[in-house]
Design a protein around this nucleic acid. Structure first.
Lengths: 236, 236
DNA sequence: CGATATCGAGTGGTATGGTAGTATGGTAAA
DNA sequence: TTTACCATACTACCATACCACTCGATATCG
């Protein structure tokens, strides 16, 4: 019955939780739980209930709810309750569209400005991806995947863009978690990454753009099947 | 001494303030004041002080501060104060870069999918721009300008993107207000808009992309001069 | 038996009290 | 005159209390 049982109290706990304020920590905790589908689309939340389970007052929980609503993960219905939003197929596709527009521009910029120095950071993430793949650790791969895209943004001097891209990615990440068993083979994704990397290293902006565009279109292949398989989690 | 004097109380006032909750209304009020430079970069704010002046409690003011911080307009320094951030030249250029990436993609999509029906909404915003220009009403022009870009997004079935673009625009809008007297003549901007419109109406994606890209590069011309003129408001 | 009125538990929104931490200005010592 | 110190007046953060409102269960009436 209690969907938040797996959430640990964060009150006086370890110093490992990085965010300074309780509100940020609650937000991060809930965001993780929603993206990883521990809190499922349609679940009802409540300021008081979450506050009780996390051992904090309602105030920081309220702040977290507001941020989650801005991120498009929950809907706050005044005097009625707050619920985890269904995954909107339209919003997923919209986020993908904007992410493609930005990351393609970044890849092109990186290919134009690549000075070889920051390339090594990218190759490291590629190595981590291969290791995670061989070890069968999907979660580790996803982290390395994020690091790869982030490293490219950094190379193009677009670290500011990453904050925005994270906000867009959230909409797609729940789909990613849903598709973990059955989606595009990880090997294919790594090959796409390597093609992007090579194009940037070769200072070939057109090729970098094409490779990035193809890579970010991948989710469109699996999306219809996932929507069909998990129809109860989707809307639109 | 009091930089918030021009802000009206919003407590029991008119029903015209659209946002439902106080927090949203306070946010909107402060956002306007910051973007229009009534609250100047470097000004110090305080939950209690703002709450007193607006006739609300500190709670909604705090929520507004958090949103403003996410928007990149203020910095919350725990136990020390909240201050209006200087305009970061780097962030302005970064926001411009991302905005160009997205709006260029939207313009291209609009040119490909334009079905003539929604074109009329765009022409209306163009007419409003010309009227505002002849009347010398810069503020009205800026509103019509926003409506123009929004209408194009709507045409491309990208209304979701507008929320994101608004967040990016905020960084550029303070520069816009600074440049109101001396920047690119409004007539030039309208001509650029008309070129974009024509390309979309003609279903010419390449031309639409080029026209939009040129248009969104305009701010880069005036930025150096504005930074030099108002150096005390900028950082980076 | 069915429709309607009522009441109460639960919700988010707001106001307020209390706490730890930080800047500041005056004071006393060197 | 300079420097170390400390009282004070702020700050944002968190907790708590109260409010208006929603909605469903239950009671009441037709």
């Amino acid at each position: 019955m209690n969907m938040l049982a797996q959430l640990d109290a964060i009150g006086a706990g370890s110093t490992s939780s990085r965010p300074a304020t309780m509100g940020q920590r609650v937000f991060e905790t809930l965001r993780q739980a929603i993206v990883q589908l521990q809190l499922r689309p349609g679940n009802l939340l409540s300021e008081a209930e979450v506050a009780r389970q996390l051992g904090v007052s309602r105030q920081p929980v309220r702040e977290a709810f507001i941020k989650l609503a801005e991120a498009g993960l929950v809907e706050i219905r005044p005097q009625r309750g707050t619920l985890v939003l269904l995954i909107s197929r339209r919003e997923v596709e919209s986020a993908r569209f904007m992410r493609e527009a930005i990351e393609v521009a970044i890849a092109r910029k990186a290919a134009l400005e690549s000075d070889g120095r920051q390339l090594e950071a990218v190759t490291q993430t590629l190595a981590r991806q291969r290791e995670a793949n061989e070890a069968g650790d999907v979660s580790a791969f996803m982290r390395a995947d994020d690091a790869f895209h982030r490293a490219i943004a950094s190379m193009a001097d677009c670290e500011d863009a990453w904050k925005l891209l994270e906000g867009l990615k959230v909409q797609m990440d729940r789909v990613r978690y849903l598709s973990m068993p059955l989606a595009t083979p990880v090997g294919t994704l790594i090959a796409q990454h390597e093609r992007i990397y090579q194009a940037i290293a070769d200072n070939s902006p057109d090729e970098a753009e094409a490779a990035m565009r193809l890579h970010l279109s991948e989710i469109l292949k699996s999306l219809p099947h996932i929507v069909e398989t998990h129809g109860d989690m989707f809307t639109d």
